Structures are given as structure tokens and as C-alpha cells.
Amino acid sequence: DAKVTPIRPAEPAPAAPQAASPLRKQIVPAGQPLPPQPSAGEISPEALASVREVEKRARKITLMELTERTCKWPIGDPATDDFWFCGLPSQAGKPYCDAHVGVAFQPMSARRDRRR
């Protein structure tokens, strides 16, 4: 005589933690590496000062608020609620505002010279 073990129903999965706002969902899970960012040594002092000034008056928009006319420069840690995009008007044909274009699009020779 073989014993029959009754099958128990599966435990329900634990509920996923809710984000602080439906528009601010985690883009990169906590603990994952962030995309490479230019270091202060790779950015000219003028461009760095310009970026800091621009970020003080940035619109601080979410991913869902980005359009083809807004600066898409990410600011902060994507794994936190304190993450946003610049949102200022972007340069024609570029994804960023004037200040962020100055940081993102630098000639290779200028970048190599600063590393020395």
C-alpha cells in the first residue's frame, strides 16, 4: 500500500513593493551598475560650471514627461526616487540642452589632452 500525500496549494507570491509614484518606476534595479558617466577630469571646468548652473534651473522631469524637444540628460541614481531628467529645451537635432551638449559631445583630441 503506497501512501498518498495530499497536494497543498502554492503560497501566493509576495506583493511587489510599490514605487513612490506611478511615474517614478525603477529603471535600473538597486545594486546594478550605473551607465558610465564622464568624470570631472574629462569635463572642462567651463562646461562643468555651466552644467551645475543649468541643473539649478532644470525642470526636473520624469521619463514619461520627456519629449523630442526636452533635454534627456539623466541626473541622479536611477535606482532611487531622487532621479530625474534635465527637461530644458534641447538643441535642434540633439537630445540635450546647450550645457549638456557641451559635456556629452566633445572631440576625442580634447578628451585625450585633459587626461594627460
Score class of each variant (00 low, 15 high):
Ala92Tyr: 14
Thr62Pro: 03
Lys60Ala: 04
Gly31Pro: 03
Arg24Trp: 15
Asp1Pro: 15
Phe83Lys: 03
Ala15Arg: 08
Pro38His: 04
Cys97Tyr: 05
Ala13Asp: 13
Lys72Phe: 01
Ala99His: 08
Pro74Tyr: 00
Ala110Arg: 15
Pro14Arg: 09
Asp77Gly: 04
Pro14Gly: 09
Trp73Leu: 05
Glu68Tyr: 11
Gln37Ser: 15
Gly87Cys: 00
Pro45Glu: 10
Pro45Thr: 10
Trp73His: 12
Pro36Phe: 01
Arg69Thr: 11
Val54Phe: 08
His100Met: 02
Lys60Asp: 06
Met64Trp: 06
Thr70Tyr: 01
Arg111Cys: 03
Arg52His: 11
Val51Lys: 10
Val51His: 06
Leu34Arg: 07
Gln37Phe: 10
Thr70Ile: 00
Gln18Arg: 11
Pro89Ala: 04
Cys97Ala: 07
Ser90Lys: 13
Ala79Leu: 06
Asp98Val: 05
Ile61Met: 09
Pro35Tyr: 05
Arg69Tyr: 12
His100Gly: 01
Ser50Asn: 13
Gln91Phe: 09
Gly31Trp: 05
Lys94Thr: 08
Ala15Met: 03
Val101Trp: 01
Arg59Pro: 00
Val4Gly: 01
Pro35Gly: 00
Thr67Leu: 07
Glu65Gln: 14
Arg69Leu: 11
Ala58His: 04
Gln18Lys: 14
Arg111Ala: 10
Ala10Leu: 15
Ala10Trp: 10
Arg116Phe: 09
Phe105Trp: 12
Cys71Val: 02
Ala30His: 00
Ala58Tyr: 06
Ala49Glu: 13
Ile27Tyr: 01
Phe105His: 05
Gln106Tyr: 02
Ala99Met: 03
Glu11Gln: 13
